[in-house]
Design a protein around this nucleic acid. Structure first.
Lengths: 218, 218
DNA sequence: CCGTGGCGTGACCGCTTGGTCATATCGCGC
DNA sequence: GCGCGATATGACCAAGCGGTCACGCCACGG
């Protein structure tokens, strides 16, 4: 948890610091990220970091939570009340998730690192919480889909959640390949590239089509 | 590439060294792995490592290649000439791949790290080669499956390979969860746990069933 | 005008890292 | 048993790390 001092910070100074930290953890995983580089980029003294947070891990946790909440809020906000059936919902979530990733490459890369972080005792809790949140979200969709009869009732629920999770998380890699996008470059440049609607749509049609045939009732 | 000196090593000394290195890179990703810990465990001097390899990266590349070749050979050897259709082939590859992972947790963890390694300039080439090899393998299966009419001809080939790859690679995580298995513990213990045939079979039936409905012709 | 508490600061600490190299040892051909 | 190339060795190096802390500044209340 951030210390009170952090919350009392002048807004622009706080933003400079958070920006620098976001950049660092987007470019490097937890272990490789350097507090020294953050303070250099933010133009503050090293000691200040420890006035704001308990340490590197505390800062990391704060940023991952921030990124996850921002992304979930984005996906939920864009969830137009429609999308009545399960596969439309999955498609919509994946679509907005991808749009978020490509427009906010720093958040996306940070979450990517957090997802695939090698599970050291230190970072285990952070990445577990992140994965649990995604699973819970999908689990809700799957349960509703089963209740609504959109999904075959004989499906193993864990397996279904797992298949969906993998495909949605890894969609980033596929789009990266297909569009020759580089998150590293985007983070360095400081701005994302809006993804072309038709191209994203075509990819999602294909992917959701496969999932639909694989999972739907009938 | 290993230097000639490495190849001239007495077999048991070489094995001790490779064992220690394997353990280290199974327990830690590339950056976190420590040459110092390897030489301590192997009971040799630090300087010796640099008589055998050009450096840490060279050693890492050697080990990843070794693990990948070992695993591919295992899967290919177990490929009983049967399994005539695409989905039987995928099921067989996934089954033997999983069996390999659980019986050789050191190789498996090493390959896991190599797969999800954050792409620094240093390790990028190693992990790209690994991914490319897996993709090429699956691509061969998909092309044959398309030619044989096992798969819908309107499928996007890249997308199909990508879906299969993700599910097979991540199968490890699912099995880990489901069976409460810990690769970390297994590496520490120095031995894998043979996976129960029926349980693995049930999981694969479910997974391949989903993929079959999603991808097959008809 | 003083005191006090919050905050900024950067030199500094202990530790670990990958890598080097002068030196010692080994083992084989003569 | 000599000589010589191959190999083993570990003290050593510079660099980087996360984290600390004594000190100084500044703003506010009395």
């Amino acid at each position: 948890m951030p210390k009170p001092t952090f919350l009392n910070l002048p807004p622009d100074k706080r933003r400079r610091f958070v920006d620098a930290a976001l950049n660092e953890f987007a470019l490097h995983d937890y272990r490789a990220a350097s507090v020294g580089r953050i303070v250099d980029a933010a133009g503050i003294a090293k000691g200040s970091v420890y006035q704001y947070f308990d340490g590197k891990l505390d800062l990391y946790r704060y940023l991952v939570d921030l990124a996850a909440e921002t992304k979930f809020r984005f996906i939920d906000a864009a969830r137009a009340g429609d999308a009545p059936d399960f596969f439309s919902q999955v498609r919509q979530a994946a679509s907005h998730g991808a749009r978020f990733d490509f427009s906010q490459p720093r958040y996306a890369s940070l979450l990517y690192h957090a997802t695939y972080e090698p599970s050291t005792p230190e970072t285990l809790e952070v990445s577990s919480r992140l994965r649990a949140a995604s699973h819970a979200y999908l689990r809700g969709l799957v349960d509703a889909g089963l209740a609504r009869g959109d999904l075959r009732p004989d499906l193993d629920r864990d397996m279904t959640v797992y298949v969906l999770y993998q495909q949605i998380v890894a969609l980033r890699d596929f789009l990266t390949d297909r569009f020759g996008f580089s998150f590293q470059d985007a983070v360095h440049a400081g701005a994302g590239l809006p993804i072309r609607d038709e191209e994203l749509g075509a990819v999602l049609d294909e992917l959701v089509g496969i999932l639909r045939r694989g999972l739907e009732l009938g």
